[in-house]
């Protein structure tokens, strides 16, 4: 007995920073993680949508599904640290013998719970995918009916610099509104003294969305006029370039 115990690797404590990926869906792994401190989000990919399945906290486990099903399948969901986390990682041998030998009735009950959980998770994924599909259709309708772009009023700071200018340059601007197609920006009129601000001029614009994700886009000036506030310019800009990721982030932010 004592010998058996020696063979089991001891648990290891791991620290994760907020945003770190702990488990990636589709990867292979057999470890069980116990959350000691912090919050972890479990999510899965359903079509193009990231579906949040659960938020777990101290005392809860990740990777237990793989263990309980005894499967050699890849991980069925991703786990990401929502804040700085401390996790204890167990090698499954630590528990697998005990699990095998546990009273069959408990195993019977645990197995049923496991099957129900898997079914529920699948249902959640399908419901979210269906919802995203309906939303996608609604967005298509919006595009078809043209110029009915949903424009959101949003007073928020940003930095911007001319395309082709030094990458170190940071001009301050204030976003007034934003949509999937363009942005309304208010800037100090003095910015005009050093850099051209003409219709057609293109700028890189960076800001941080309320979910703390960065948004980087390229936009060109369509119209420019004095803002109501003295010494300020108001610019109507349309996006000329945006990564898929940025489009996704912005789309998420603009969702009613």
């Amino acid at each position: 007995m004592a010998k058996d115990k020696e063979k089991v690797p001891p648990p290891i404590c791991l620290q994760y920073k907020s945003g770190d990926l702990i488990i990636k869906e589709g990867d292979y792994g057999i470890s069980i993680y116990k959350i000691i401190d912090g919050k972890v989000r479990i999510s899965t990919q359903s079509g193009n949508t990231e579906v949040n399945l659960a938020t777990l906290g101290p005392g809860e486990f990740i990777g237990e599904m793989t263990f309980l099903t005894g499967s050699t399948e890849p991980r069925s969901a991703s786990a990401r640290a929502l804040e700085d986390c401390e996790l204890e990682v167990w090698h499954p041998t630590r528990l697998s013998k005990e699990y095998e030998e546990m009273p069959p009735i408990l195993k019977y009950i645990a197995n049923q719970a496991l099957k129900r959980l898997m079914r529920m998770n699948k249902a959640i994924g399908e419901l979210i995918a269906k919802r995203a599909e309906i939303k996608g259709l609604a967005q298509k309708d919006l595009q078809a009916s043209q110029r009915l772009f949903y424009r959101k009023e949003w007073d928020h700071e940003c930095v911007y610099r001319p395309v082709g200018g030094s990458a170190k340059l940071r001009l301050l601007g204030r976003i007034k509104d934003i949509s999937m197609s363009g942005i309304g920006l208010e800037v100090n009129a003095t910015n005009r003294l050093n850099f051209s601000h003409q219709p057609g001029d293109e700028f890189f614009i960076s800001t941080v969305l309320p979910n703390r994700k960065e948004l980087d886009v390229t936009a060109k000036i369509v119209s420019i006029k004095s803002a109501r506030a003295p010494g300020r310019l108001s610019m109507g800009m349309s996006f000329t370039d945006m990564t898929d990721e940025a489009r996704k982030r912005l789309g998420f932010f603009l969702m009613p």
Binding site: I32, G59, E60, F61, L95, A110, L114, L117
Partner: peptide, 15 residues
């Protein structure tokens, strides 16, 4: 093992 099973039950409840 208790912790693991209780975690599973809690997940089922939340799902």
């Amino acid at each position: 093992l208790k912790g693991l099973i209780m975690s599973l039950i809690k997940r089922l409840q939340e799902a």
